[in-house]
Amino acid sequence: MAQKRIVKEYSELQKKPLDGMRISLPSEADMHQWQILIDGPKGSPYEGGVFTLHLSLPTEYPFKPPTLSFKTKIYHPNVTNDDKGSMCLGMLRADEWKPSSKIEAVLSFAKALLLEPQPDDAVEGGIAREYKENKKEFIKNAKAWTKQYAKK
């Protein structure tokens, strides 16, 4: 079931791409690993940058949630600032996942999180605190990182 549904979701997203996102398969032979390029949303400090994400779909998909990670370094409270770049998405947690969630929804959610970080649900406490207490500084840093790491 996984393969069929993944193929279907992939082709749907190719047919009707999400705004500001480009999806590709690093390896045509492996439908379970997707590469996603997301443009930094307009109005966010990530504007002007392009962020590479990696979506990994388990073999049990859709009965097990996919995982989403940033390959491009990003200054964001909800993305771990390490080599993994894991993004904290509630709907991807094992206990919150449901099979009817689609990849399109996951990606939309990820993009929404770029527009509206969730400092209360952060994985980067320092960045979250800055976001809440010193937004100006946060924006400055996020822009600097975008410029440094997410150049087009």
């Binding site: 080599d83 993994k84 406490g125 440094q148």
Partner: peptide, 26 residues
């Protein structure tokens, strides 16, 4: 100080590695 990942398994020493952001090691 780098925050651990929630699902980060305990790593053996030999697996501790530098962050793998190619060409722009933070």
């Amino acid at each position: 100080g780098r925050p651990p990942l929630r699902d980060d398994p305990p790593r053996a020493v030999s697996q501790i590695h530098r962050p793998a952001f190619p060409a722009r090691n933070p």
